[in-house]
Amino acid sequence: MGMALLEVRDLSVVFRRRGEEPTIAVDNISFDVEPGQTVGLVGESGCGKSVTSLAIMGLLPSRGAEVSGSVTFEGEQLLGLSQRQLDERRGRDLGMVFQDPLSSLNPVVPIGLQITEVLERHRRMSRKEAKVEGEHLLNRVGIPDPNRRLDEYPHQLSGGMRQRALIAIALACRPRLLIADEPTTALDVTIQAQILSLLSELVSGTDTALIMITHDLGVVAGLCDEVNVMYGGRIVERAQRHALFAEPRHPYTHGLLASIPRLDAPRGEKLVPIRGSVVDNIAWSRGCAFAPRCPNQLEQCWSDPPELVEDRGGMLRCHNPVEVAPLAAEGTR
């Protein structure tokens, strides 16, 4: 097997502002993405998901954001590349879909030009070829009457159509890695499912890998091979999708699962939100950031930061994980 497509190692991002305490937005996280794999990055708002994705893309502001660690893409170190070198890879090797489809499109430029722009840039197409390809791309993401849509402006499209257009733009150059940062959060519930199935349809069967960023475990359920759960800038649990949903080990993951409605839940089961909020967090340097909200907390949790260790084929950062039945046979992992 060898090298993964993307290897993130000890990535940290600290925001420093004059006269303010530095914010550790991302704290030493590591994960791999294999070609064709879909990896979830899940956690409550503010846990550092977007900052992680922007750090991978090299899009954090050069002033104020201090990035350390390593991000390699096909063996090449991305951190430290110049903006010009990054521009050669962004849009071609690495694509990104953002949360709000309306604000992510240029309001004064027709949809068509926003697609052909990338095609001309990275695939060296002429304006004419790019237009034909653009029409084809819009068709592929399920936008009807693509020829007419090319001349329309973002405000003329509905929310779901805009997100489809953005996906078409992000996939225009067949990147090997697509990062989708909460791609359905700003959309109507009925449209969310369509966009998710479109994304999985587009990446499955290709070797395009997908990093799916969301605060909603339900989104991850049907899509991801592997899931990283983040809390307070750190990864607290990593597991294969089935393991995570069947037997969540971290109390935070457990809480997230208990707070989303499930189809297979027994009738009358109540949804239990996680108590408290991220403002209750303590610093990781002092103990477990989740301790103030954790039902399983021990005395140790308040003084001794838990390490990320291997656990049942995944990774876990917890002193007192949720008990599950022991693995049937040792060595199956």
Binding site: D87, G91, R92, F98, V108, V109, E117, R121, A170
Partner: peptide
């Protein structure tokens, strides 16, 4: 600082086009 300029940067759009197509007209 707007989202669509960030999105254009994420596509590797060249600096000149960022200024004249994505920032200036807006």
């Amino acid at each position: 600082e707007s989202d669509h300029v960030l999105a254009a940067k994420a596509l590797g759009v060249k600096r000149r086009a960022i200024v004249f197509r994505h920032i200036l007209p807006n």
